[in-house]
Amino acid sequence: MDFIFVFEQVLNGLGYGLMLFLIAAGLTLVFGIMDTMNLAHGSLYMAGAYIAARVHESSGSFAGAVLLAVLLTVVVAVVLEALIIRHLYRRDHLVQVLATFGIILIADDAVKAIWGVAPLLASTPAALAGPIEVFPGLPYPAYRLLLIAAGLLVALGLYALVHGTRIGMLVRAGASNRQMAEFMGVRVGAVFAFVFALGAALAALAGAMMAPISAVQIGMGEAILIPALVVIVIGGIGSIRGAFVAALLVGLVDTAGRAFLPPALRAVLPPALAAELGPALAGIAMYVLMAAVLALKPAGLFPARA
């Protein structure tokens, strides 16, 4: 195991973590500010991936496909918030979970009706199909470097929005103490609608960017939702900074577990046992991280209501 392999896995973990951040940031804002458990957040991620893959295939423009995927997903989210989600704000979490789970089932059936059941094969942009030599001896896929750069830029932009603008001040006030924000005259309904649309845009962007390197298929939203929930629990519900740090930790731990655990076990265990145990332990690495963090800080690393 040499330095180049280790550094390559670090880059893989950063890319995965930053895409997780895009999903978890919207989810933690919706849960932290609106106190609404939206299990359908992963369906918005799936919508972004499907729209971007189809538009890119038809038009040949990847940038245009990503932009259109984000815009159309935001439109869907605005309609969804107006028709269903806003009626759940004052309901208990069990009702929210059941209602948004129903949205997941509807979304999956809608995808089957529009695009069929077969997975889509999204293509990488031609200009980014080759590798870039990060340093001598380490060629790395150019598209994965774009994922890292895009994730960092969005994280910086989101931080500037939340901490440097008036709307960001209202968002932070709602995350810290929603009732007090209402007493101070904040138009909570408008803030909620903005937060939900922003979360949808981030989820759609992540789906569109991940489409060329992951399977675009029915159920992909539910699969990514579990790591996103782990991220917001580790980072602290309602905290953008917590979501960013936790997403990087989860991305690195998950990638390191899958890359390093199986070879390490093969060195000390019989091959058949190592082949079974390695992937299983790698799959639970992020849950072990979550348990360790919660044992030390039950509210997460950076809770918004600290």
Rank of each mutant, 00 (worst) to 15 (best):
T165E: 07
T165Q: 06
R166H: 11
R166L: 13
R166N: 07
I167M: 15
G168Q: 13
G168C: 11
G168F: 09
M169L: 13
M169V: 15
M169S: 13
L170P: 10
L170C: 09
V171H: 04
V171W: 06
R172K: 10
R172L: 05
R172N: 07
R172E: 05
G174I: 00
G174V: 00
G174N: 01
G174L: 00
A175T: 04
A175R: 04
A175S: 11
S176K: 10
S176T: 11
N177I: 04
R178F: 03
R178E: 03
R178I: 05
R178K: 12
R178S: 10
Q179W: 07
M180S: 09
M180E: 07
E182A: 15
E182S: 15
E182I: 07
F183Q: 14
M184E: 14
M184F: 11
M184L: 15
M184H: 10
V186I: 07
V186F: 01
V186Q: 03
R187V: 08
R187D: 15
R187N: 15
V188E: 05
G189E: 09
G189H: 06
A190I: 12
V191E: 05
V191K: 02
A193V: 03
A193Y: 08
A193S: 14
A193D: 09
A193G: 11
F194D: 09
V195H: 03
V195T: 03
F196Y: 11
